[in-house]
Amino acid sequence: MNKIFKYSIIIVATILVIFLSLDIQKLDRVRTLNDVTEVNADTFALNFWERELPGSISAAPDVNRLLRLLKTNPSKAFDEYSKQLGISHTYYFMLKGSGKILSVEDEYIVLETDEKMKVQIATAFIFGNTVRDASGKVDIDDFLNMTSFNNVSIAINKLVKARVVEGLKTLARPGIFLQFAGAIEMTDGDMNPDAVTIIPVSINLIDGNTK
């Protein structure tokens, strides 16, 4: 009798442990939890490049005006032209202009603008979120997580390399004139408008040979 009582207790205790270990939820709630549409980064970037970026380029300030303002009144430059992401001291800008290639280096070309300012146009180290965040066209709230949001930057940078940088590296020669649009970042308290490196998003040779 004692044995039957003892085994009964053990069985009841085992059932209790198993029951308490289970977390039973409604299936539709679990489905809702997992039913998250991931953004396809390459598709998103292509759409951004063809439909959103032209508007950002169109609204971008002239390179000479922006650099002058960054030197003389950075607060005004930040207020009027920059975009920021979250809590940050980094400001992102779109800009555009024209100039003459002074030299072609391994990782950038040196350009003299039509107002005799020198800037660099990157032809390597095309990384990070500069174009995405300078455009102001990609909202973090549209993404499930930071990984998806950052995948868009990787995809945009791939387009920069494939659609702009490759052609630029092939054709760039000292003395050539070109029009450009691109993105830069500046960190408040640690910026140097005299040494700006632009991530290019559009390059047109002045002679009409467009790339």
Partner: peptide
């Protein structure tokens, strides 16, 4: 509130 706020 924003859904997410990155901190530099």
């Amino acid at each position: 509130f924003k859904t997410k706020t990155p901190v530099e």
